[in-house]
Amino acid sequence: MANTEKEKELLERLKNGVIQYDEDSVKEAAQEVLDVGMDPNEAIFDGLVSGMEEVGRLFETQEYFVPELLMCADALYVGLDILKPHVTKMDMGVRGSVVIGTVEGDVHDIGKNIVKMMFDVAGFTVYDLGRDVPLDKFIEEQIKTDSDLVCLSAMMTTTMVGMQKIIDKLKAKNPNVKIMIGGAPVSREIADKWGADGYAADANNALKEAISMVSALKRMRDESRQQTK
């Protein structure tokens, strides 16, 4: 797919618009993407997402903090809302659906929303249960939607503990479901101990984790299909 000079310029504007949380600039560039007939999928991944990747780096090196991250996310969504309706196929090599929410007792949803954004751009179907979600609601929703992935978020130590119960119940009902937990108090140690398949202390590594989990799931299915042959 050869990029014309114009396409390169648009990708650059989308990327920088996200990094500089410039919603107007993203809006204009996204509209031009459609006008010139450029592949919107490419604009999302090589423009908006690569901007967000840079934001992730700025966040990691503490040049950006949460307010900047939120403003960048707003700019990304401006572009995504324009481009996504025109995407015919999401070509990330994965398909999946995810149930996501903040556990009961916790009303903090910023981390959850950042993770949700990353699923949105990756083309997942996202069932967002919101915040302060009763434990059983996660289980009901997973069964109802047959989602591959359940993401639980908790911002405080005092609410994180509730996640263990959900993990146990989900795994009992459906051993194949992948569970990802996230939030400031969460650690690798806790994820391992409670039997979660992945964890994200912040939004940065959440998408990578999510994709590798769904890939693993696909591999498992392929293998079991081969065995039954």
Partner: peptide, 10 residues
């Protein structure tokens, strides 16, 4: 909190 954080910047 979402609004508060953004406004503390803007």
């Amino acid at each position: 909190l979402n609004d508060l954080l953004k406004l503390s910047f803007k």
